[in-house]
Design a binder for these strands. Structure first.
Lengths: 135, 135
DNA sequence: TTAATTGCAAATCCTTTGCAGATTC
DNA sequence: GAATCTGCAAAGGATTTGCAATTAA
């Protein structure tokens, strides 16, 4: 079973230090800058394993790439700023309830849902275009 | 502006006859079987145009492919069966309102949201594993 | 020791693009 | 006739995979 290798820990650490969702390639860059030598394929493989073990969340961007995020135990969603990329975690009891109800009405069970909100945060909309320097 | 070509109409027709979401490649196959000669690239291009014009819905599957579906004019979401792939359109006034409120609370504007529900539909869960033969 | 893991590069898969010829308006 | 399409094949970008060398247990 799963061995605890330097690479695996590095990927986890990179994931932990990320503010929001990251693609495998972004994580690979982070590791590279940190001086950790980890192959891109290994990053992909590690993320896959973690995703299978449900240790990380996976979402698909519009471009089709997979983004990963280490997830806290509890279920929640994200509100991401389209301009600066800042993300806020929001819990949505209302949404959870809605999802269950709607699913139930249609006879569905074992329901899971994906909810992602995006918009422009206060600072970015005021300044009319402050760039994202923080990634 | 948009020309009405045989290929374009064929893609639209294929999309209309589909029960649920289809990938570009699936649509291409459908057309092929119907005897319509339409290049794969053309299918992609048509779908892109339609998606831009908001004439079709686009979602990303777990595998990373884009799936398209002709949609009614109004905004709505989908409840998809993980087993047979059947999809139900659900409107979510509750979700829309929630999204706006949450975003507002965090100072975000120009909010958009993505919501997809998946589960196992009644027939599939009863039969404990009836396969999806219909695609 | 030994099964699991890594790295690299080649291979895949989905999607996009360049371009010459065909089409719609 | 002019601006748009289409098809094909080549190009791209993300992710996967084969395999020999490496490493944790």
């Amino acid at each position: 079973m799963a061995k605890i290798t330097r690479q695996r820990q590095a990927v986890l650490a990179a994931l932990d230090s990320a503010t929001s969702f990251c693609t495998a390639q972004e994580l690979h860059d982070v590791l590279r800058h940190r001086g950790e030598k980890v192959g891109l394929a290994t990053v992909y493989r590690s993320l896959q394993l973690m995703a299978d073990a449900e240790e990380v969340d996976v979402i698909r961007s519009d471009g089709g790439e997979a983004s990963y995020r280490r997830c806290s135990a509890k279920h929640h969603h994200h509100l991401v700023c389209r301009v600066c990329g800042r993300a806020v975690e929001v819990s949505g009891p209302a949404v959870e309830a809605w999802a269950d109800r709607v699913a139930g009405e249609h006879g569905f069970s074992e329901v899971s849902h994906t909810v992602e909100l995006s918009g422009v945060c206060a600072s970015c909309s005021e300044e009319g275009g402050a760039e994202a320097r923080e990634l």
